[in-house]
Design a protein around this nucleic acid. Sequence first.
DNA 1: ACTAAGCTACCGTCCAGACGGTCGGCTAAG
DNA 2: CTTAGCCGACCGTCTGGACGGTAGCTTAGT
Lengths: 184, 184
Amino acid sequence: MPGEQRNAPRTRREVIEAAARALIAHGPGVSLDAVAKEAGVSKGGLLHHFRTKQALLAGLIDEWFDRYDTIVESLLEPEDTPGRWTRAHIRATFTPDDLWSHPSVVTALLGVPELQQRMDVAATRWRQQTDSDGLHPQRADLISRALDGVTLADLLWRDQETSEDREHTRDLLLKLTEQPGPLV
Amino acid sequence: MPGEQRNAPRTRREVIEAAARALIAHGPGVSLDAVAKEAGVSKGGLLHHFRTKQALLAGLIDEWFDRYDTIVESLLEPEDTPGRWTRAHIRATFTPDDLWSHPSVVTALLGVPELQQRMDVAATRWRQQTDSDGLHPQRADLISRALDGVTLADLLWRDQETSEDREHTRDLLLKLTEQPGPLV
DNA sequence: ACTAAGCTACCGTCCAGACGGTCGGCTAAG
DNA sequence: CTTAGCCGACCGTCTGGACGGTAGCTTAGT
């Protein structure tokens, strides 16, 4: 069984995903024991890969951003039209990810001190993408605010709205990227 | 000294405000000890008013919504013009409240199970206010999303943006309430 | 090619401290 | 006198992380 052999990177990834699942199962504030059990590894083994609980959660954060960026890039339109980055972000935000955008996961990550700096890095990266996107600043601002709002709503009001509502909102935002000039 | 006498409602309020301060000082996951000390009351006294930690945080949640609603009502325009509720919400959202909208406080509240139901109640109340507001649904939807986004940004990217940016966003949203008809 | 040495991945136990909550008691208020 | 507000000591539990150990992998020396 090749899967049984030692393999640090693989174990590391499995621990991170197990952490996400354990977070959902046990709520924010899971114990390292629970994560280790979910990952099928001993607590000692877990702490070998992540020396502290904070480090583990920071690993989760990095994985989170990586996934989002990968999704955005996969949704980029091939032609270089105005608003293509913004549209990719819109589609990515509306792509549900039950595992990684679960309230418990995000709540846990919000309490990690490292979040601030990584968030700043990610925010400037995203801003660069949308700043050179050819959209009127007013539109770009409004759309990015709305996308943040959709993210927040996913955390607090999930299943409060129908998937039809969601599609309407998404289509509206997409349409807003297809016109030039100011909004008002 | 009249302030030193026993007074249950006052102590209760003081405990709640102390909880907010302690949350900011010690991060989410403050101990009851720390809250009690901040409130100038013993731990037993604290637990006399809130039988569990959850109950204390639930009290914080209620206070939070009460304050927001009070602010919204104080910002309502006297004349019954279309969009007046929406504009009040916009102004309220852009009214900074360093104590109550601090990341640590919100993070702590996000972990409280009771939040969900109280959030649902508040959400339907706000929706009723803005549904009968005379705005085109598209506009109402977009604006409320953007407001959620501003709230989220306050939590994650505070001082990442200038107060000038904030004002521009606020003015844009306000202007969006002053026109009838669809956006696109 | 063989092997010994050293390193890395991983295990399982242990512990000190923190924390939520209980309880018996005291005292002001009514 | 009774009750509600409040005190502060106490307890059981849980958890992060340290630590000493073990076994697989890599590499160097022969």
